[in-house]
Design a binder for these strands. Structure first.
Length: 285
DNA sequence: ATGCCCTTCAATGAAGGA
């Protein structure tokens, strides 16, 4: 079974590319977690995804933010936002679903963390405070010791210096600052494992490149992650970044590439056309 | 060996992204 996290930077602008890509892969994605929809729910092209066998849970917002989870596994329950009408849900950035059965199912959290602007700005403070909310939200999930839970999305933090192409040049710029990295670690300390670092120790793979020539020079950052509880890690087989949709010239790509987790989905009766290869392609030069 | 910012909106440039 495969769970994908993809910041699409507008679902309406990216629909063609997204459908091309899913087809190109042989329709092997079972759970598709999308970020930065940039549209209200009514603007989401739900028919196209239903035609591919996905059930869509939407949490959209006009012009900014917005997340969705499209699943081929049965959705048992859904929760959108941090909940209880909090001020923190004015920006729609987080949702979760329970998939499969209640006993042998999995929880998938889909998140789009704030960018943060510049250090010391209002947006920067918002980002750090938002991470506090995120931490308590995830603590609840992590404290359920039997919870097979994945947390995927755009965290807007490059965890290590090796997660950026030029650590010296990017020192103390957004996504690399000590306070942000500390905030990221508090999430991990709730009881999660960074699946990429676990499966590929000592290595990094970027998930975002600025628009322009950066993708052709592999000058990017790792800011998208998949985290797992111990139970989730136990069924995790591999993780990779698929560069195909990022390197496509037409239609215009997102600035992110999709991150794909492969798990042992037999207990969930996942009916996918899984292939052995997750599909990681490095730039040719 | 090249590519050299994109999307949104009571829009026609500005704001937000990373």
């Amino acid at each position: 079974m495969k769970i994908c996290s993809f910041n699409v930077n507008s679902i309406r602008a990216r629909l063609g590319l997204l459908l091309d890509w899913l087809s190109h892969r042989g329709d092997d994605i079972d759970v598709l977690c999308l970020q930065e929809l940039k549209t209200v729910d009514e603007g989401f092209p739900i028919n196209e995804f239903q035609a591919l066998g996905y059930h869509c849970e939407l949490y959209g917002q006009k012009a900014f933010n917005g997340v969705a989870i499209c699943s081929r596994l049965p959705v048992v329950s859904v929760s959108k936002g941090f909940g209880s009408d909090t001020e923190w849900d004015k920006q729609r950035r987080i949702m979760q679903v329970r998939l499969g059965g209640s006993a042998d199912g999995i929880t998938v959290v889909n998140v789009y963390a704030p960018h943060g602007g510049e250090r010391g700005s209002e947006k920067y403070n918002y980002k750090l405070q938002w991470y506090e909310q995120f931490k308590s939200y995830l603590s609840t999930i992590a404290h359920d010791t039997n919870n097979t839970a994945f947390v995927v999305g755009d965290f807007n933090v490059a965890r290590y210096d090796s997660d950026v192409y030029d650590p010296a040049a990017l020192k103390d710029t957004i996504a690399t600052m000590p306070e942000e990295r500390r905030a990221f670690e508090t999430i991990i300390e709730c009881g999660f494992t960074d699946i990429y670092s676990h499966c590929h120790p000592g290595k990094s793979h970027y998930t975002w490149w600025a628009y322009g020539a950066a993708i052709w020079k592999d000058q990017g950052m790792r800011i998208d992650y998949a985290l797992a509880t111990a139970q989730a890690l136990a069924i995790t087989k591999d993780i990779g970044v698929d560069l195909w949709p990022r390197r496509k010239k037409t239609p215009t790509p997102s600035d992110h590439a999709p991150l794909i987790v492969e798990t042992d989905g037999s207990r969930l009766n996942a009916n996918s056309h899984s292939k052995d290869l997750i599909g990681s392609f490095m730039p040719s030069s």
